[in-house]
Design a protein around this nucleic acid. Structure first.
Lengths: 353, 353
DNA sequence: TCCGCCACAGAGAGCGCTCTCTTTAGTTAT
DNA sequence: ATAACTAAAGAGAGCGCTCTCTGTGGCGGA
């Protein structure tokens, strides 16, 4: 009776070691180890015995001990610099992490989250990452000129970036097609008869900001008009900045009949200003955003927006890193994922022209 | 010349060990170790020598080796079950993680992110967490009845939950005052003259859903009216469900002049339906949401909403876990953080009465 | 002068595992 | 029957660190 009760309780106290598993299975520690490292040189009989012993004892290998001898940590660092969660809109962070996590989990790798919030943190980060605490690093590149990725790479630490870095180094990265997304957005505006198309850009010291502006210019130029800088107004991805930029554009160009915003949040700010200025959307002014975040469907009218495959970006980043880990190579691969335009009411055919 | 060049290059190759640091410093490994473990029994002279040697060699302690002997991992697991990122609105995930990360970073603890995406993952999770891969566990409790937290606790693994669990166990948790938040929202509606106040609830198998409904009922009852179930309609926190619920409420109670929604996203859906039904907001119907997410300021009219201190919740969770770790105790502490109402246009004084 | 005490430093075991090397047992060729 | 080979299992070192135990040298008190 007593014995049974004890046996029914979850294993408490010190975790069982491989040694104990081996003893219960009646084999040597080495053989037991081979079972857990997927070494083929084990007889079916021994394998079964070890597996049963492990299950009985609820054995889980001690990762620290394994790491100490193999040098592998089976964990991946994800570096997200502080401003990211503030600047990027709503589905960004969870979507990215979800995609990454999905791929890593399948390989039994752990995701270690690193969010340096100060310069001191960032300094420590390099030491931490190059000290072999992780097998590889994923980074969301905000400021394209961050020297950290290249330095890690030079120390032999595999790195994959999310978002195009501004330099032209040997870095591997995954990006969404910001240029193409912006271009199709503006082409859509041209195709629906808009003549005076302005843009509210993101910060121009960031790859995303630059690229989305580039796409806008490409489309404008291709449409026959020559790009006019006065139709471009910079924002910081925030709602307030979108409002301010919109007002500036209206003051400068009362005739504008469309605006492409580099983020949905800025577009929401722009909509507010247009309303105050008694411009009807989309009849007088068409608006297109970027990100296709949840706010796109909650504005009035609902916001046309460029959707980016954020989760797929996470998956692809993880896949690239795993490929690097497996092959040992570290060539600078680039993957650019397609974006797509989701048309909603805010860019419906206008009634002004 | 050559020498200097070599010295200027970053330390490549195998990471330096404590042994090497000790040799350079001219002390024993034990003494060097004492320096890094903040052991006071080291002479200033020896300490300085070790510190200089460590800096010169760019020494970073090997975490695996340290873990192996101390049993501590200096890392904390954060468990976020799959549906969380989908169900919860926009600032939830980043804000929470940011708060947690802030506190852990100060203590040089790593955050290991665990997002079980399948039942198989969840099964593995218990083994992983109880195998001593982390020193403590933070969990976002979705389904209040998840048995995992209690089982981990029983195995001696400190656990702190985010969100009230439905059971009455010895679990330590941090929650925001959902009841109070909902109550002040509805009290605000009553105070501004609303007579027929409906609610769109969250899923009623979740603590948040239940609590926000409770707060609504408390306020209604306190306002003299007796709660009438037909004014309550359940949603799933999603926009579409908010729209459906709103329509159902309007069909049932054309006279309603206010609706309290358990999430901003549902409120956005409700606004859409009210517009289609030619109900002016706030003149005919006042709307209040919950979460104070970014969409609250992008709807028309801007949404009054209950703000919850998500980042503080993260910080508090981390602090409670650290306290448990430090003291060794594991008593079921509860912390409830205050919520506050942010009044915007959607609940302005109406014009119907 | 000698003993005892204190502050510090060194020696060495051992954490749990992997992996190389060696041994053993089983099989086939001669 | 013996040699030659192969597959499977065991022995044992050692990964880098912490921590206990054991010196060691300097100093004050008897």
């Amino acid at each position: 009776m007593y014995k049974e009760t004890v046996r029914a309780l979850p294993q408490i106290g010190p975790a069982p070691t491989l040694e104990e598993v081996a003893k219960v299975a009646g084999v040597s520690r080495a053989t037991a180890s081979r079972v857990f490292t997927a070494n083929p040189k084990v007889s079916p009989r021994a394998r079964r015995a070890v597996e049963r012993a492990a299950e009985k004892l609820m054995y889980v290998p001690n990762r620290a001990a394994r790491t100490l001898v193999t040098g592998r940590t089976d964990s991946i660092g994800l570096v997200i610099p502080e401003p990211t969660s503030l600047l990027f809109g709503d589905p960004f962070f969870p979507g990215l992490v979800r995609g990454i996590s999905e791929v890593l989990t399948r390989r039994q790798l752990q995701l270690v989250l690193l969010m340096p919030q100060s310069t001191a943190d960032e300094t420590r980060l390099e030491g931490y990452l190059s000290a072999g605490h992780v097998d590889g690093v994923l980074m969301v590149s905000l400021h394209g000129n961050d020297p950290l990725p290249e330095r890690l790479l030079r120390r032999g630490m595999p790195v994959v970036l999310g978002g195009r870095p501004s330099g032209n180094g040997p870095l591997t990265y995954v990006d969404v097609d910001n240029v193409g997304g912006a271009r199709i957005a503006v082409e859509h505006l041209i195709a629906t008869g808009r003549k005076h198309i302005a843009t509210i850009t993101g910060p121009l010291d960031m790859g995303v900001g630059i690229d989305r502006l580039q796409g806008y210019r490409d489309a404008i130029r291709q449409g026959g008009n020559h790009a006019d800088g006065s139709y471009e107004q910079a924002g910081d991805f925030g709602q307030e900045s979108g409002a301010v930029a919109m007002q500036a554009l209206l003051d400068r160009h009362p005739e504008l009949d469309a605006v492409f915003c580099a983020s949905d949040v800025m577009a929401a700010g722009a909509l507010e200003i247009l309303r105050r200025n008694r411009r009807r959307v989309p009849q007088d002014v068409a608006v297109v955003g970027f990100d296709d975040s949840t706010i796109a469907t909650s504005t009035v009218p609902a916001l046309s927006s460029v959707r980016q495959p954020i989760e797929e970006m996470g998956r692809e980043m993880a896949r690239l890193l795993l490929a690097t880990l497996d092959s040992g190579t570290s060539g600078g691969k680039r993957v650019v994922l397609a974006t797509e335009l989701v048309v909603r009411a805010s860019s419906g055919r206008g009634g002004r022209e």
